[in-house]
Design a binder for these strands. Sequence first.
DNA 1: TTGTAAGCGTTATCAA
DNA 2: TTGATAACGCTTACAA
Lengths: 350, 350
Amino acid sequence: MSGLRNRPPLATIHDVAQLAGVSIKTVSRVVNREPHVSAGTRARVDRAIQVLNYRPNIAARTLAGSRAYLVGLYFDNPSAGYVSQMQSGALRACRAAGYHLVIEQLAGSSVEVQNQLRQSLAAVRMDGVVLSPPVCDRGEVLDLLDALAVPHVRIAPARELGRGPYVCMDDGRAAQEMARRLLALGHRRFGFIKGHPDHAAAEIRWRGFANALAAAGLILGPRDTWQGDFSFRSGSEGARRLLSRGPRPTAIFASNDDMALGAIAMAHRLGLRIPDDLSVAGFDDSPGAEAVWPPLTTIRQPVAEMTAGAVNMLIDGHGPGRSEPQLFDFELVVRGSTGPPPIVDLAAGL
Amino acid sequence: MSGLRNRPPLATIHDVAQLAGVSIKTVSRVVNREPHVSAGTRARVDRAIQVLNYRPNIAARTLAGSRAYLVGLYFDNPSAGYVSQMQSGALRACRAAGYHLVIEQLAGSSVEVQNQLRQSLAAVRMDGVVLSPPVCDRGEVLDLLDALAVPHVRIAPARELGRGPYVCMDDGRAAQEMARRLLALGHRRFGFIKGHPDHAAAEIRWRGFANALAAAGLILGPRDTWQGDFSFRSGSEGARRLLSRGPRPTAIFASNDDMALGAIAMAHRLGLRIPDDLSVAGFDDSPGAEAVWPPLTTIRQPVAEMTAGAVNMLIDGHGPGRSEPQLFDFELVVRGSTGPPPIVDLAAGL
DNA sequence: TTGTAAGCGTTATCAA
DNA sequence: TTGATAACGCTTACAA
C-alpha cells in the first residue's frame, strides 16, 4: 500500500559492530575500505555485514561526511535516444562505484534555470554533477556551479573549454571525415542540415564539413544549407527545401541522425531512391539509424561511454588537481544510405 | 574543478532561527507548513528564509524524519521515447512537490534484479518508487517491495492488479477501437505485430484487437501475426514476413509505434504505397509518429501524465487507505498512414 | 590496530 | 503558540 510507513528496521552500523564484536568505527573502516584493519577483524565484520544484509544509510553518510554517494545528471535534450544512452552510461558507472543517480531537467530562461539548479543543489547535496549539451554550454549554469563550488564534468561542451573538466569527441574531425568520404565517392553538390543553434557542437560539425569541402574547392552557399533543430521534422523539412531547387544536391549530410531520418523519409516521399538518386548521412548512430531503410551512414558517438567516463571523473577526482579532458574515439559507420552519385552527375563532376 | 571540496557554507535551520529570533522548531514548523504558528512569526521566519536563501538539507530531513523527499523511478524499457516521456512527467510532478527523482535501471535475472533493488532501497531511503513496464509486472519486485514495506505505484501493470495502487490506460479497449476503425474503412485482411512477450500490456492489446475482429467474423491465424519485441527492427522484420505471403494484408496494426515505423520503412522498401496499398497503425503516439511519412495513425497514451499521476499518488498517499487505480484516457489519433484498402480488395470484401 | 566522542542538520517528543 | 532536547546513522578528529 501507498500509505504504509512502518518499514521493517534495517540493520545499522551498530548492529554490525555488536555482532562482529568491534566498535562502529572499525565497521566504518571496513565499509570504506580504509587501511589499518587486521585481516581477521575485517573478515569478522564482512561476515556480520553479510548476515545482517547491512547497507550504509546514504543520508547519514551525507550528513556526517563529505561525500553524498549521489551524482546529478542535468539535461535538456530533445533527443530521447541521446538522453537514454547518457543515462544508461551514467547508471552503469554509478552502480559500479556504489553511487546513485539523480536526474533533473534544466529548461527555461536564465533565471529559471538558475533557480532550478540552486534548488536542486541546496536540497540534494550531490558529490558533483554531469552537464550534458545543451545545458553544459550555458554560462549562467557554470557561473552558479563555480560560485557554489560544486564539482562538475561536462559532456561534449563547445564553449569555454578552459572552464573545468570535460569529456568529448572531435566533432569537427568527424564531420570532416564524413565530407571526405562523400567527396571520395564522387559527390560534388551537397546539402547540409544544421543542428540546433543552441547546441554548439552543431556549429563545430558544420564548420568541419564546410572546411573539408572548401579544401576540395567547394563552397556551400546559404541555399545549400538549412537551419534545423535536431528534430526529425526539421530534417524532413530541410530536405524538402534542399531538394526542391535545381540542380539538386546528390548528397545530404545532417548534423544528427533524427534529422537524417527525416531527410530519408522526405526523399521517399519525393520518389527519390536512396542511395541511387541521393546519399544521406547522419551523426550519432542512434537506434533508428540501423533500422531505417536503407540503413544510415553515420558517425558513431560513444555517448554512453562518454557519460560513464564523466561520472568516473567526478567520482575519482577527489583530490585537487587539474584533470585533462578525456577524448573519446568516433567511428564512421558506413551503411547503405550513401553511395556514388547518379552516373550523369558523376560524369559531370569528373 | 572536479576535486574541489570546500563548498561555501549554506544556511542552516539554526541560522534562520537566529535571524528570525525564534527556535529551530518554529522554523521547522513554518517550513513544513504545520499549524499553530502565529501569522507574525510565520512572516518573520519566511523573511529570514528569503534573506538567507535557506533550503532544508534533504539528508538531514531523511535521517531525522520519515520522509526523504526522494522518489525512485525504476525502469527497463527499450523504447527511449517512452522512458523519456515518463521521466518528463515524473520530473514535473517531483518539482511541483519539492521532491527529487532517483532513477534506476532494473535488468537481468530475478536474483540480479532483487539485489539491485535491495541495494538501491537500502542505500537511498526513498519515500516510494514508481514501477514502469515491464518491471512492474515482475513478481519478485513486488514481493521484495512488500517485504520492505516500500510504497509503490505501478504504471500500466498487467498482472496482479489487486496488489497495490496503479495508474493505467485501457489498452484493450484502445486496440479494439483501432480495429473497429480499420474495419469501418473496409479492411478485411489484417496483419498484427505483437509486442514484447514480457510486457503484459502487449498481450492485452493483442486480445483487444483479436476480439474486435472476431466480433466481425474474422479470425487471425498464426500466419497473420508476428511476435515482435517493441523494437523498430522487429517491426520491419514482421512487416516483411506478413507482406511476403499472398494474399497479403491490407492493414497492419503494430503494438507500438516503433514497430509501426519499422513496418512503414519496410513497406517503402518493398515499393508499397501507404496508405494506398497498405494501411499501418501503431500504438503510443511517440515523437516519430508525427514525423514519419505518411504520419502514423496511432493511439495516444498520456505517458507523461500517467507518470506524473503515479508520483502524485505516491506523495499524497501518506495516510493509510486504499487508493483507487487512476484511469487515464487514450485518444485515437488518425493520421495519413491509414485509409481504405485498395479498390480491388474493397470490392472483394463487400 | 582499535576505540571514544563530538558533531552533521533536521524532525519528533514533550514540556512550558 | 512556542521551545529545549533527544534522537537519526554515520564520519571524522583524536586517543589509546
